[in-house]
Simulated assay, not measured.
Amino acid sequence: MKSLVKKEFERGVSLPFVAFPKDGSVIQDSPKLTLILMDAEFEWTGTGPLRQHISEWTKQHGKSPRFYPGSLIWCLKKPGRDLREKVELWLAWKRVFAEVTEGTLGADFDRADRADIQSKVKDAEEAAKDEVWGGYRFAVIYDSREADGLKAIDLGAGHASSGETLCGRIIAALKSQALLNESVGAGYLERNWPPALKQSGAWPLASLRQSFLNGSLTRLIDPDSILRNKIVEFVGKGDLGLASGQKPDGTYDRVWFEEQIPSDEVTFESGVFLVTKAKAKALKAGMKPEPGAVVGPVPEPVVDEFKEREKEKEPSPGIKTRTLRLVGTVPPEIWSRLGTRIIPKLKSGSDLKIGVDFSVTVNAESARSIESDLRQIIEDLGLKGKIKIE
Rank of each mutant, 00 (worst) to 15 (best):
D222V: 03
P223N: 08
S225F: 04
S225H: 08
S225C: 01
I226S: 10
I226L: 07
I226G: 05
I226C: 12
L227M: 06
R228I: 04
R228N: 06
N229E: 13
N229M: 04
N229L: 05
K230W: 01
V232M: 04
V232S: 05
E233Y: 03
F234H: 07
V235M: 12
V235G: 11
G236H: 08
G236P: 01
G238Q: 12
D239M: 08
G241M: 09
G241N: 08
G241R: 08
G241S: 07
A243R: 10
A243C: 05
S244V: 04
S244R: 10
G245Q: 03
G245M: 03
G245A: 03
K247R: 13
K247W: 09
K247G: 01
P248T: 03
P248W: 02
P248G: 00
D249M: 08
G250M: 01
G250P: 02
G250H: 05
T251E: 05
Y252V: 03
D253G: 12
R254F: 07
V255P: 06
W256Q: 02
W256P: 00
W256M: 00
W256F: 07
F257V: 05
E258T: 01
E259H: 04
Q260P: 00
Q260A: 10
I261Y: 06
I261H: 09
I261N: 11
P262T: 04
P262A: 06
S263C: 03
E265Y: 02
E265P: 03
V266C: 02
V266G: 03
T267F: 05
T267P: 00
T267W: 05
T267I: 06
F268K: 03
F268G: 01
E269K: 01
S270Y: 09
S270K: 11
G271W: 06
G271H: 09
F273L: 05
F273G: 04
F273M: 05
L274M: 12
T276M: 04
T276I: 06
K277H: 12
A278D: 13
K279P: 06
K279W: 07
A280K: 14
A280Q: 13
K281E: 13
K281G: 02
A282V: 12
A282S: 15
L283N: 15
L283T: 10
L283V: 04
L283F: 12
K284P: 01
K284E: 13
A285C: 12
A285F: 12
G286I: 13
G286V: 14
G286T: 15
M287S: 15
M287E: 15
K288Y: 13
K288I: 14
K288V: 15
E290I: 12
P291N: 13
G292Q: 05
G292N: 07
G292I: 03
G292E: 05
G292P: 06
G292A: 10
A293I: 09
V294G: 07
V295D: 00
G296L: 15
G296C: 14
G296D: 13
G296A: 14
G296T: 14
P297I: 12
P299F: 09
E300M: 13
P301C: 11
P301M: 10
